[in-house]
Amino acid sequence: MAKEQKARAKKEQAKGKAKETMGRAVGNERMTAEGRTEQAKGDVRQAKEKTKDAFKR
C-alpha cells in the first residue's frame, strides 16, 4: 500500500507542476493556482508516507 501512495504522491506532484506551467503559459491564474494546490497535496501525501516509514523502523 505504501508504494501505491508514494506513486500517487509523485503523480499528483507531476500533474500539478504541469498544470501550473500550462496555466502560466496561457496566463490563466486559476489553472496556475489549481496546479500549485495539486502539488501541495502531493507534497503532503509524500510527507505522510515518509513519516510512516520512519516509524516502521
Rank of each mutant, 00 (worst) to 15 (best):
G35D: 00
A18D: 04
D53V: 03
G27K: 00
Q5G: 13
R57C: 05
G42M: 03
R45H: 10
K6N: 14
F55I: 10
K52H: 01
N28K: 07
A33D: 11
R30N: 11
A40D: 09
K50I: 13
A9L: 08
A40C: 01
E20W: 02
A40N: 03
E49H: 03
A14R: 09
D53A: 03
K41Q: 06
G23F: 00
V44C: 03
K19H: 02
A33Q: 12
D43M: 10
A40M: 03
E29L: 10
Q5A: 15
A40P: 05
A9H: 05
V44G: 05
E20Y: 05
T32L: 14
G35T: 04
M1Y: 11
R45T: 10
A2P: 12
R45Y: 10
A18W: 07
F55W: 02
E38R: 01
K6Q: 15
A25K: 13
A54K: 06
K52C: 01
E38N: 02
K17S: 11
G27W: 00
R30I: 15
Q46F: 10
D53K: 01
A9D: 07
G16A: 08
Q5S: 15
G42W: 06
R30W: 13
R45G: 05
K15I: 08
K6T: 15
D43P: 11
K10L: 12
T37G: 07
T37C: 04
M31S: 09
A7M: 14
G35Y: 08
V26P: 08
Q5F: 15
E34Q: 04
G16C: 09
A14G: 01
T51E: 15
G35L: 00
D53R: 00
G23D: 02
F55L: 06
A18V: 14
E34L: 02
Q46M: 11
T37D: 08
K50F: 10
K50L: 11
R24I: 10
A40Q: 07
G23S: 07
A25T: 13
T51G: 11
K52F: 04
E4P: 07
F55Q: 09
T51P: 06
E12I: 05
T37P: 04
M22D: 07
K17Q: 14
M22N: 04
A14N: 08
G42A: 02
A9M: 07
A18M: 13
K15F: 08
E38L: 04
R30E: 14
R24P: 00
E34Y: 06
E38F: 03
K10C: 07
Q13C: 02
G27V: 02
K15L: 11
K19F: 09
D43K: 11
E20M: 09
A25R: 14
G42Q: 05
E34H: 06
K15D: 12
M31F: 03
R57I: 10
E4N: 11
A14H: 10
R45S: 05
A54Y: 09
M22R: 04
T37Y: 05
R8E: 15
K3L: 13
T32A: 14
E34F: 02
V44N: 01
R45K: 10
K15C: 09
K52V: 02
E12C: 10
R45N: 10
T21P: 06
